[in-house]
Amino acid sequence: MAKVIILTGDAAETLEVFYPYQRLREAGYDVHIAAPEKKKLQFVVHDFVEGFDTYTEKPGHTWDADIAFRDVDPADYVAAVVPGGRAPEFIRNDEDAKRIVRYFFDHDAPVAALCHGPMLLAAAGVLQGRTSSAYPELKVDVELGGGIFENGGAVVDGNLVSGRAWPDHPEWMRAFMAVLEARA
């Protein structure tokens, strides 16, 4: 069974971890969650409240990480997923997380990134000249990482499929599954 890795950590958006996790398992992939440490992760729920300029954050589900970044051999996986939430803010500083991301881009393997996920891609140096979506307020982060920002729900640039946030799940995962199956 082919394996897919999800790169995340504490404060990841619950929906953005669980939707690809379950969709990929439904399609027959063995999905592993990697984090800075192999431990129980605390996810969060982001939602919009009338009158607020940005989203609010509440505690979400907990889930065990299967493997620490340092123990990941990316050659064991056919694709990677980088969900959003606040986790990408801190995992982008993890050298092993960046190593894993670079592997997938160096090997033209499928990568799905959503919401704040492109922050890790920018830190890994793989967005140079690439078109990527992200949470719209991260346009500057995509551009500072050398990328071209596109405000879309399923932006495909070669092996990279990106979207804005969890409301884009159907379009984002449909496009990612098509890239994944085409490269299988």
Rank of each mutant, 00 (worst) to 15 (best):
V101W: 00
F18I: 15
V81D: 04
E13T: 02
Q42Y: 03
K3E: 12
E171T: 12
R70F: 12
F104H: 03
R86Y: 04
E50F: 11
E89L: 12
A182F: 14
T14A: 14
F69W: 06
P118I: 07
F43T: 13
I33F: 06
K3M: 02
A175D: 07
M173R: 01
G145C: 06
A178K: 15
F149W: 07
P36G: 09
E181D: 15
F52V: 08
A79R: 05
G84I: 05
V82G: 01
M1N: 09
V45C: 08
E171F: 12
Q42G: 09
M119V: 07
E89Y: 04
S162C: 13
D10T: 04
M119H: 09
I33L: 11
N93R: 11
M173S: 07
P20N: 01
D30A: 05
L114I: 07
R164L: 11
R92D: 00
G84W: 04
S132C: 12
H32I: 09
A124G: 11
F149Y: 14
I91G: 05
P118F: 04
G146R: 02
E89M: 08
F43P: 03
N159W: 02
I5K: 02
K40L: 15
D108I: 08
H32W: 12
L160M: 05
D157L: 10
E13C: 07
Q22T: 11
E143M: 11
F105D: 03
A122E: 03
A68Y: 00
